[in-house]
Design a protein around this nucleic acid. Structure first.
Lengths: 247, 247
DNA sequence: ACGTAATTTTAGCCGCTGTTAACTTTCGCG
DNA sequence: CGCGAAAGTTAACAGCGGCTAAAATTACGT
C-alpha cells in the first residue's frame, strides 16, 4: 500500500545533455569550446563552464581551461550510450508514434533520463534493432560501439557507379527535404553520372530524372555497398521524411 | 546548428506525484493526512508537509493544518489528467513493451513528466483508446472525467447471475495472481452461484470449476453488464497478468 | 484531565543547476 | 607590441526539493 521505492531515478539528467553535446561536437577529433557546448545544450556559458569543470572532476572530460574540452574514454563510453538511447527514442517517436523529426528529437531529449538498460533493450528489440536513426545517423550498438554500416558516401565512389541510397544524413531539415523532393531518399536507385572538377556540381540520375547537386548536398548522400558486382538488392532502410533535427 | 529551445520541460515533476497520491488517497471522500501522502510519494513527512503547503498556496489543495488535505476542483482536474497519463503509460508499458505490472507502474511514474497533450493523444490512439489500465482500473477520458464502464462489482449482483469477468481490480499483485490461477481473469465466463450470509464466502463457477472465495477477493471482481437478457458477447478486454502494482 | 506518544510543522542545511554580473584570459589587428 | 573585444571563468544568488532535528500540536490511555 505504501509505494516507497517507486520514486527513484530521474537523477543526473543534465549531465547527459552535456555529454551528448560533447560527443557531437568532438567526434571529428577537435576539442569543443565552452560556447559551443553552452549553445548546444541551451544554457548560459557560465553554466556550461561550471558543468565542464564538474565533468572533468568526474574524469568524464579532459578540460583545458580557456581552450576547450574533450571526452575521456570513460566519458566517450557514457556518451555513446546516451546517443544510442537518444537515437532509439527518435526512431520510436518518429516511426512508431509519428512525430516529425524535430519533435522526435526534442521528445527524445526529454525522455532520455527515463531510459535504462531494460527499456533500451526492449525498445531496440521492438524496433527491430535499427542501425540508423530517422536522420540516417548510425545508432551505436549494444556494446556501445559504432555499427558497421554497409554504405559509403556517394562522393567516395567513382563516376558511373550506380547504387541505392542508404541514407541522407543531415541536421538541416531543409536540405533533407529538398533532396527528398528530388527523389533522393533512402531506397532510391541512383546513378552517379559525373563529378565536375574544382568543387563543381555533381550530376546524378534518379529514375529518369537527371539532377545536379552542389557538393554540400551531394555530401549528405550515402549509397549501399554491393560488394561484388551484384544488383543492389538488400533490405530497404527506414525512410526519412519530415523536417528539422539537430540531435 | 544551435539547438536552443530543445531543453525545455522536465519541469514541475514532483508536484504531479503529490497530486496523484492525493487523488488516490482521497477519492473516496476522506481527507488524506500528511503521513499517508509522504509514504505514498516516498518522501519524508517534512517534505510532504511543505509540498502540501505549496499546493495549497497554488489552490490545488485545501489544507487544514494538522488535520489533512484534499484536492480542490482545480487540483482534482489536474490530478485526473495525471492519472490518465499514468494509466495510459501503464497500458503501453505492460501491453506493448511487456513489462510486468510493478515495473510498468514505476516506469510510468518516471515517464509521467515527459508526457504532454500531444503525446497523450497519440498514445491513447495507438493503444486503441483503452478504458481500463492493466490493473482493471478505469482510465479517465480525454475530457478528464471518469469513463462509464459497462460493468458492475460481482457482489452487487444477485446470486444466480452469470456473466463475463470484465476486470479484476486490485493493488495487490498476489491477489490478482491468485484469482488468475483460478481462471478468474478478464474475459472469463463466470456464474455467481451463492453468497453466504454473515460475510461468508462466495461461490462462483468458472468453466466447470467451482470456486469459493472470501469476500475480500470476491470484491475485486467485476463483470460486464449485459443489459437485457442477451448472452455476454462483447469485445473482450485486455488481460491482466503479472504482479504488484500500487499506482 | 493530563501527560506522553505520535504526528505534523517549521527551521536550517545540502546539492543541483540555472542566471547575471564582474573578472580574467586569449587573440587578432593596427 | 599592446590594446580592446570576445570568449571563458568565477562569484553571488535563486528556486526546487530532498533531509534531519527541533518545535508545535493533536490524540489517546489511564
Amino acid at each position: 500500500m505504501v509505494n516507497r521505492a517507486a520514486q527513484s531515478s530521474t537523477r543526473a539528467r543534465s549531465v547527459d545533455l552535456y555529454l551528448h553535446a560533447l560527443m557531437l561536437l568532438t567526434n571529428h577529433g577537435q576539442q569543443a569550446d565552452t560556447g559551443d557546448v553552452a549553445a548546444r545544450v541551451g544554457v548560459s556559458a557560465a553554466a556550461a563552464s561550471r558543468m565542464l569543470k564538474n565533468l572533468a572532476r568526474k574524469k568524464l572530460v579532459r578540460l583545458e581551461p580557456y581552450q576547450g574540452a574533450e571526452l575521456t574514454p570513460e566519458g566517450m563510453h557514457r556518451a555513446l550510450r546516451i546517443v544510442r538511447r537518444h537515437r532509439l527514442l527518435e526512431v520510436f517517436l518518429h516511426s512508431v508514434m509519428g512525430f516529425d523529426l524535430r519533435e522526435s528529437h526534442e521528445r527524445a531529449q526529454r525522455m532520455q533520463p527515463t531510459v535504462d538498460e531494460a527499456f533500451e533493450e526492449k525498445l531496440d528489440q521492438m524496433l527491430g534493432r535499427p542501425k540508423i536513426d530517422p536522420h540516417g545517423r548510425p545508432i551505436p550498438a549494444r556494446n556501445v560501439t559504432w555499427p558497421r554500416l554497409a554504405d559509403s558516401p556517394l562522393l567516395d565512389l567513382p563516376a558511373g557507379t550506380s547504387g541505392r541510397v542508404s541514407r541522407v544524413t543531415s541536421e538541416d531539415a531543409e536540405a533533407i527535404r529538398y533532396l527528398e523532393r528530388q527523389g533522393l531518399r533512402a531506397g532510391a536507385a541512383i546513378v552517379l553520372e559525373s563529378v565536375a572538377p574544382f568543387e563543381g556540381p555533381v550530376t546524378v540520375r534518379v529514375g529518369r530524372r537527371q539532377i545536379h547537386l552542389g557538393r554540400r548536398l551531394a555530401q549528405l548522400i550515402n549509397v549501399e555497398n554491393h560488394p561484388g558486382g551484384e544488383r543492389p538488392a538488400r533490405t530497404r532502410r527506414r525512410d526519412s521524411r519530415a523536417p528539422k533535427p539537430s540531435d
